[in-house]
Simulated assay, not measured.
Amino acid sequence: MTDRPARARELGLEPHPEGGWFRQTWRSEVEVTVSDGRVRPTATLIWFLLPPGESSAWHRVASDEIWLAHDGIVELQFGGDGDQPVAGEVARVSTSEDTQVLVPAGVWQRTLPGTTEALVSCLVSPGFDFADFELA
């Protein structure tokens, strides 16, 4: 990622550490204490933009994540829940195929490079916190 894409500028998106561009658009004011004592909002929501040819790195979060399609196609690859990701099933998140795709808590995921720009939202519950984010 070198230049900020026009749509990222329009939506106020910033570079995401995993790749792509993002901005948190909502954070629940209701909090929950998870089993290990962490306190998180019940849910958070972001916009995530993936320009043509870009991908995200293998990563996982400690909460369930639902990808919601807005525009374009994102190929989302699952990598299991072991210590390191292992390339597995690919889901296509798009308005004409799977409009919602669940990535269970603790499962490795990455996006594959596409040929067109794609915009999705990602809903995380319990809410996302970078302390719960792991890059491979």
Rank of each mutant, 00 (worst) to 15 (best):
I66R: 00
D83W: 03
H70R: 07
A62H: 00
Q100M: 15
H70M: 05
D98R: 12
P85V: 15
S96P: 01
R92F: 04
H70S: 00
Q100K: 13
D98K: 12
E89Y: 12
S96N: 05
G82A: 07
V101Y: 01
V86A: 15
G82N: 06
D64F: 03
D71F: 08
V101I: 09
F78S: 10
W67G: 03
S96W: 05
A69T: 14
A69V: 13
E89V: 06
A87D: 15
A62F: 01
E75S: 12
V86H: 14
T95N: 05
R92N: 06
Q100D: 09
Q100F: 13
V101K: 02
I73W: 04
S94R: 13
A87H: 10
E75T: 09
A87L: 10
D64S: 01
G79M: 13
F78H: 10
G72T: 00
A69K: 07
G80I: 13
E97G: 15
R92T: 12
E97I: 13
I73R: 04
H70P: 11
A87C: 12
R92E: 10
A62P: 00
Q84N: 05
T95K: 01
E97T: 15
D81A: 08
F78G: 05
A91S: 13
H70I: 01
H70N: 05
R92H: 11
D98T: 15
G80A: 08
D71G: 10
T95V: 07
Q84F: 07
D98G: 05
S96M: 00
S94V: 12
D64T: 01
E89K: 14
W67V: 09
P85T: 15
R92D: 01
T95D: 04
V93I: 03
S94A: 15
D98S: 13
